[in-house]
Structure formats: structure tokens, C-alpha cells
Design a protein around this nucleic acid. Structure first.
Lengths: 117, 117
DNA sequence: ATAATAGCTGGAGTATAGTCCATGTCAAGA
DNA sequence: TCTTGACATGGACTATACTCCAGCTATTAT
């Protein structure tokens, strides 16, 4: 199945401008129909979902792009992609620790403030 | 104790430019000595530590500034500050869930790629 | 006395990630 | 046929968070 940019916008909650921007920086390259309109495949949709997941965890587009470049080069880059994914896993594990540290700091502060009122 | 901007830079691993920028946007207002040089108090240092903790969890400076404004207004704003801190606690709890979702997505992808090589 | 060091200000410049706009094409319905 | 809607492009603009620079003052070391 193929989807036009307006459908992607509606179904994936992302603006047309953002989709075109991602294409401009080389994150995604949808096909085109005979009138040059973008056609996003199911694979493109899956890739977009992945991008949004990475973005939701604050991965910069530059990093995501590294992964995109490897995808474009085909199956010989699978090992490198695993490396990137494992790095990201490490970062996220670290990020959880940072959040936990902040949470316990917040607890302390909230408790302290509550004694003041 | 008071610290000059260069000491803060070294000890808190933050650039002088960033410290001046934070002052410009009203996040922190250190005292000045007779030559107009910034003097950061222990309270300022504690506040900077708090800022960095919030920043480490991706809170935008605008949000941090809301809290800064309440601090400036004194003890009548404690209840409001508790509200902000509790909101942030909620966000961070949510963020951990997002990270966990991304982590399990990464696991799946890594496992899948490993079957391919 | 001079030079290096540390600080000041105002303002310009940068990177990231979009967002908006003018203008134009194409297809389908009234 | 004409208008509406969906899409296209190129380029300007925006917000966030710094970062850098020119030009100045004050303190400290030699």
C-alpha cells in the first residue's frame, strides 16, 4: 500500500512541512507518482514510526540520519546498525538513571516544601 | 561563601557564556562586587544544581523560568512551586514509560538484525 | 611599568528543528 | 468552464539555547 503525504499527516500526527523537511535532510525518500506527488510505502511508514520513537527519546535527527544512511546502503551494514541500536540502548538506560535521580531530588524538594505550608 | 563566575565555570562544568545567558533570561541573579563582578552564593550554586538536574531531564528553560519567577516572589508561592514540581514528576514518570517502550522496540530490532547476520 | 588574567557589556552568529508563505500544477466536482 | 482541494517547490522566518567576538576595566605577577 501507498499513502500520500496528507494521509500520513492525518494518521501519524505529523505536519506535511515536517515530512518534507525530513526528506530534505535525507531521513526518508518516498517514491513519487507520475505527477511528482510523494507516495509513502508501508516500509516508509514503519521507518517513520521508528523515527518518532527515537525522537520521543530525544535522539537528535543527525543521529537518526546516521542510521538512515546505513539503511540506504543495504544489508552489509546490519552489524553497524546493531552497534548504533546498542549504543542507543545504553544511552536510554543511562537516561532512566538520570530521570530516577531527578525524581528522587523532586521527592525531597516536594516533601520539604510540604513541611513549610 | 561566594564564588566568582570563573570558579563556577570550573566547578560546575558550565561555560561563563551560559551563566551570563541564564542571568540575561532571568534564571539566576547573582550579586555583584564593587567592580560589578558576579558573586554566586551557596544558594545560587544550589539553584544552579537544580537547574542542571531539570535540564538533564530536558525541561525547557522557559519552564524552569516559571519556577524561578515563583522563587523570586518568596514563600507565598510555595504551593504553586509544589504544583510545578509534581507536574514535572508526572512528566518524568511518563518519560520513563516512553523510554521503556523505545527500549523494548530496540530489543526487538536488535534481536531481529542478529538473526540476519 | 608592563603584561597576563579575569571579568564586564552589547551584539552578532550558530545549530537544531521545524514552520510559514508565495506561487504553481493537476484532477475532480458543480 | 470554473473553482476547490491536494499537492509541488524554493526560500524566508522562528524559537531555543547557546557561543563567539570586539572593546573595555580591574587585578595580579614579574
Amino acid at each position: 500500500m501507498y499513502y500520500r503525504i496528507g494521509e500520513i499527516e492525518k494518521n501519524m500526527n505529523v505536519s506535511i512541512d515536517t515530512l518534507r523537511y525530513y526528506e530534505k535532510i535525507g531521513l526518508i525518500c518516498p517514491e513519487r507518482d507520475e505527477h511528482d506527488r510523494r507516495l509513502y510505502s508501508d516500509a516508509d511508514v514503519a521507518w517513520l514510526e521508528f523515527i518518532f520513537r527515537l525522537k520521543a527519546t530525544h535522539m537528535p535527527l543527525k543521529e537518526i540520519k546516521k542510521y538512515a544512511e546505513l539503511r540506504k546502503q543495504g544489508d552489509e551494514t546490519i552489524a553497524k546498525r546493531i552497534d548504533l541500536l546498542e549504543e542507543q540502548r545504553t544511552r536510554l538506560t543511562q537516561e532512566k538513571k538520570t530521570i530516577d535521580a531527578c525524581l528522587s531530588y523532586l521527592e525531597t524538594k516536594i516533601t520539604h516544601y510540604k513541611t513549610m505550608i
